[in-house]
Amino acid sequence: MSDYTLGIKELDAVIGGIKKGSNIMLIGPPMSGKEVILYYIMYYGAAKNENAVITVTTRESATNILEWFKEHKLALPLARVGIVDCVTKTLGGAAAENENIKIASSPVDLTGIGVKISQFFEEYYMKKNIKKTQLHINSLSTILMYSNIQTVFRFLHVFTGRIKATGALGIYTIESGMHDEQSIATLKQLFDGMIEIKSEDDKNFIRVVGLSPKPTPWFEYEIEGANVKIVGRK
């Protein structure tokens, strides 16, 4: 069995699995279902592949994310799921930590976010002896709104390095069209490959670049509830 898979079988079949230690940028326009795709990968990783999954959320509170999985009747194995919530405190909500949720003060607090990620890594890798971990950051675009590109690059450099060193998998979402090309090019240096999403004529397409000898075809997909359904290819 390959080291990591996305759970979208048409893409997995073409790329033949993802090597340990890979860092991937998930880039696409707003309203293209990126969040559902990331949740889908998260669920597949934790429930089907038995990886630990750490999600840093700068867009939704941890409570809302867990509620989303419940609403869609997806039983997340909570012993393998950790969420670093950068939203709740910013909105002035009551923020209580538990074994699944750690609270960072805001998306600006990269030091605090880093500490919380490290705590989850240590818990899964050292204490629970789960050797396969996925780190998802959703989204780099929010972090870039508050910090300059050099600061974000340094922050990511630490964690992409840790992903490589521990044989984990990192997936980092970013909005296309929201940042200048120089910023995207700077960040791309840290990644082994990309999951690219584009919208054309009210249709959404996805492909993977850099994780196999040549890019996958563009696959048309639809979001049905919590499912990512491939309906055709270009």
Rank of each mutant, 00 (worst) to 15 (best):
M1K: 14
S2L: 14
D3T: 14
Y4N: 05
I8L: 03
K9V: 09
K9I: 06
L11I: 00
G16Y: 10
G17T: 05
I18R: 07
K20L: 11
N23R: 01
P30I: 03
P30K: 06
G33I: 00
E35Q: 09
V36L: 02
Y39W: 12
Y40S: 07
I41C: 08
M42W: 05
Y44T: 05
I54H: 01
T55L: 15
V56Q: 03
E60G: 04
T63Q: 14
N64G: 12
N64R: 12
I65F: 12
E67M: 15
W68I: 08
A75V: 12
P77Y: 04
A79H: 14
K89D: 04
K89R: 12
L91E: 13
A95C: 09
A95F: 06
E99I: 10
I103W: 01
A104Y: 00
A104I: 04
S105C: 10
S105H: 10
S106G: 07
P107N: 04
D109V: 01
D109I: 02
L110A: 01
T111L: 08
I113N: 01
I117A: 04
S118E: 15
S118T: 15
Q119G: 12
F121D: 06
F121Q: 06
E123K: 14
Y124D: 04
K128M: 15
K131V: 06
K132W: 01
Q134C: 11
H136I: 15
H136F: 15
S139Y: 12
I143H: 03
I143L: 12
N148T: 07
F153L: 04
R154I: 00
L156M: 13
L156K: 05
V158E: 09
T160M: 09
R162C: 08
K164S: 08
A165N: 10
A168T: 08
A168E: 10
E175I: 05
S176L: 01
S176P: 03
M178E: 14
M178G: 06
H179M: 07
H179W: 01
S183D: 11
T186I: 13
Q189E: 09
L190N: 01
L190D: 00
L190R: 00
F191Q: 00
K198W: 05
K198N: 09
K203R: 13
R207A: 02
V209W: 00
G210H: 01
F219Q: 00
F219D: 04
Y221T: 02
G232I: 06
K234I: 14
